[in-house]
Write a protein that binds this DNA or RNA. Structure first.
Lengths: 213, 213, 213, 213
DNA sequence: TCCTAAGCGAGACGGTACGTCCAGTCTTCGT
DNA sequence: ACGAAGACTGGACGTACCGTCTCGCTTAGGA
């Protein structure tokens, strides 16, 4: 998440960085994204709105993307670790959390910007993969492993394929088709995974219709 | 596609517009998107690379977006309309064509640039959707409808879901996880779709293993 | 004088440079030097005061120094070439003209600014020497040569020494002691020069008292 | 000389100021003037070169000028009080001491900077007048008064005019014409003063040629 | 032997100006 | 009336210093 965040954890010499300024900058960033849109957000504008010098912004984040990543990270960072008793319930809970990210305009704007940044910058891509995406993927893996242990799924589930089947379609719809990223799509993806990796003797237990109708 | 293109079809008085200049500008745009990415493309840079005055660019397109939209239209590559006899063969043929796009470094760079552009510009997003993506999706729909007619698939296939299950995972891997977009993934997706929408009496006809081993 | 001026005499293609902008920039520069002093003059301030973009300033002058040098050139006031019939009268006329420069608050402020600029910039110093000071010195030399020809002065007058004796004390008082730069001082300097370089047989013709009492 | 020096003579409670830091700052200042020139000297650079915090510099001097004045004061402070037996010898001794100041590059750079500072700051101007200039002027007055008592000069010497005739020309040459401030000029000035204020019966005792040839 | 006060190096703070780049518009000349 | 060339105003970029303000840490004198 802090992919380009300039770290300074240890308390070295010198005046410590102001947490006030930090917060003011992040708040200003979010406000500006919401007010004028991601493209119109400038470092100069953020500094001015936050009542902060430009150098204070650059001291903490090397780029606008890095800053916005952290800003929005404050909103969408929480990823649940659901335990509803059924694999289907757990997966739906995770997907619903992800849905909320797509549905919130600010988060969606950030996500678009992140993808644009990832397309051109390997470091940003890595950071987003490990920080932003990684924790969501790990949550999915946890649920799937629990499902295998529980017997809801086959023992040889291809975790990576399942992951792609769950996240890929929503991502594609969000970025490419521009259609609604809604509960129906999420449910379809979950049921597709459940059917694909259903235990041998129970094919059809979760029918595609069962999840929607 | 020509959403913001400034038209001038009628042959008024004075020197007619140079078709050379037109082409040079579009070519320069595509080259620059490939080389430096959409964000780093500037009108100034396009004009310079095309050996053209800035006013000449603005005279024809009123924004960078409008220009890029038209440039994209020029590179909508031909998409095959395979008829191998089986739905699985047809889908694999389509996916293989798409694969080649991801695998070719130049195409991949362009694709990244397009996504970045889409993320920042609704008109570009629309243009890419209807032009670039649309023809690929239509090819998939044709194959799926033929499969339904042929009896390879259920009669009530959710075309949109199928489409997302086919393209989403590859797209996600390409942009987000950065992993290999290869035949294995393509085959898994095809088989997932075939199983999900298999006719009622023939579940398991195409096993996931069968498509890979 | 145009030491760092960026030349563009030939009329190439493209929009010609605006003479309006040029004048506005120079005027703004002079005004600002007068108002806030050389050190406090900034390119940003000049551009703002002139109602001009910064790039327009930098397109014409590479540096603040280069700009100020040309601005100075514009204010090289006319220097009289008096011919009162006597060397003493001519010198007093020249010194009175110089006096007016010291006495006028605006000119004095500008002069201070120039000296400050000269102390920090060799190119500016050169420009002031040749453009501002030079013509005044040449006027003094003309009068002295005429005095030598007329027989008011010795034939071997050390022109440079005379020049320093005339201008040095007033300059010193203006900048260093801060005392009044008045007619009394000017007259004393003139008479000192006349006595120092009086023809051999006429020492004391112009007594120091004679010029004041 | 310590015009803006911040005093702290009394030994209050708390840690006393480090004489090491003091010396390091002054040394760093002189080194930097010599190395990069007065213009390029920054408080930040001085502190860094001295291995000292910026606050330590500002605690002692409130401006760059104040600091540099003291720094160079350590070199050029001494003014002789010559007694060679003749007024001419005494004046030449004083002027030679002043000459050395103009000839030393570091001192000359400081002098330029001081004039620039004086041109804009009354407090600095006053401080330089009373400190830097004052002690030199007082030395000249002492010598002239001794000359009057001795009978080398008239009893009604205009001390201020004499002072201006001695220092003005050198100062003018240094700042304005940029020519050499050398012994020849100094001697000419001294002899001009001696002739101007020679006792009534002894005009020409010190001819201009006598002082040079 | 602690306490208090002021010093210390370090470096972050809100700012200002730098010199560059590009946006989008506006002239000029030559074709 | 087009073309290219390039100047125009405007404004964001990322950097360097400004002079001030904390930090944690000495380093003294007085309690």
């Amino acid at each position: 998440m802090e992919h380009e965040r300039i770290e300074s954890d240890r308390q070295g010499p010198g005046r410590p960085r102001s947490e006030e300024a930090h917060t003011a900058i992040l708040t200003a960033s979010i406000d500006l994204i919401r007010d004028v849109g991601y493209d119109a957000v400038t470092m100069e504008g953020i500094a001015a709105r936050a009542g902060v010098g430009k150098a204070t912004v650059y001291r903490r984040w090397k780029s606008r993307e890095a800053l916005v990543v952290e800003a929005i990270g404050r909103i969408v960072a929480a990823v649940p670790d659901p335990d509803t008793g059924s694999t289907r319930g757990d997966l739906l809970a995770l997907m619903t959390a992800t849905l909320r990210m797509y549905e919130d305009p600010a988060s969606a704007a950030l996500l678009s910007g992140l993808v644009a940044a990832m397309a051109r910058s390997a470091p940003i891509a890595d950071a987003v993969r490990t920080g932003f995406v990684g924790i969501r993927e790990e949550a999915v893996r946890r649920v799937l492993r629990r499902g295998m242990a529980r017997g809801d799924l086959r023992q040889d589930v291809d975790l990576e394929l399942a992951l792609h089947l769950l996240h890929g379609p929503m991502f594609y719809r969000f970025l490419i088709t521009g259609g609604p990223v809604d509960a129906a799509l999420a449910t379809d993806c979950v049921d597709t995974v459940l059917r694909t990796f259903a235990p041998d003797g129970s094919a059809g237990e979760h029918s595609a219709d069962g999840g929607r109708g």
